[in-house]
Amino acid sequence: MRIGCLHTAASNINVFETALAKVDAPSVTLVHRVRPDLLSQAQQYGGLNPEIERLTNAALSDLSAEVDAVLLTCSTLGPCVTNERIGSVPVVRVDSALAKESTCAGGRVVVLCAVETTLGPTTRIFVDAGKKLGASVEVRVVQDAWPLFLGGQITDYLAAVATAVAHAYEDGANVVALAQASMAGAADLVRGYPRPLCSPASGLLAAMSAV
């Protein structure tokens, strides 16, 4: 099985390859495409617009010709996916998969984001999932984290996310979810609290299930 991943950061290639190794799916191969220009345009515009949506869907369509399922790994671009399939190929949003997993048991769910442009899309998809499954959802931005990521200070970036995870549990969260794929490495830094849920594993499992 071949799963195509559309990323907006090259560093997410390793994130998803690592996640694939952990879910133990030896028959699955990942095909990666990186389009940082799409996220850059969204950040400059302050969100999505028809041109960004067109370019994103064109990239997803091109990728679908090579694989059995397509995975959109950028939560900012998530709303560009309006159909669950391109032809016969399923299309999965990692944030949608994570939203379903994190809210399925109900309770209080705190969702952490690192970049402002993903706040709106993330809030909508997690709140909708929470309503369906009886969970209370709060979405937070990890302040000052994204400049660290953009500056290549990944260790400091992940440490800031891990600290935010601890604060969320201290505030009474039953589940903490890391909305952006780039945050996944922070899960390994969390000590003394439950491991937060991460979108790469959720997305990969959802894509395999869709196939």
Rank of each mutant, 00 (worst) to 15 (best):
L133E: 15
L112R: 07
A184T: 01
Q153L: 05
D171W: 11
E138Y: 02
V142P: 10
V175A: 00
L133K: 13
V111Q: 01
D156T: 00
Y157L: 10
L150K: 15
P196V: 03
T155M: 04
D95Q: 00
G185F: 01
A145V: 06
C80V: 14
A160Q: 11
M183F: 08
G120F: 09
A145D: 02
R108Q: 13
I154R: 13
D188F: 05
R191D: 12
A177E: 00
D144A: 13
T155D: 15
E101K: 10
S182F: 08
D144C: 09
Y169L: 09
F126V: 02
F126Y: 08
R140D: 10
V142F: 07
K100R: 14
A179M: 08
G151M: 06
R195L: 15
T103K: 07
A129M: 01
P121E: 04
V109R: 00
E101S: 13
S136N: 01
K132I: 04
V110D: 00
P147Q: 00
Q180A: 14
L112W: 09
G151W: 02
V111L: 04
C80F: 11
T117M: 07
W146L: 08
R124Q: 15
P79C: 03
R93Q: 08
Q180K: 11
H167C: 06
C80E: 10
Y193W: 08
V89W: 02
E116T: 10
D171Q: 13
I86L: 15
P79E: 04
V139E: 13
C198W: 07
V141D: 09
V94T: 10
V111I: 07
A177G: 13
A184M: 03
S182D: 07
G87Y: 12
K100I: 14
G107I: 09
L133S: 11
A168V: 07
D171H: 10
R195K: 14
Q153V: 03
V137D: 09
A173F: 15
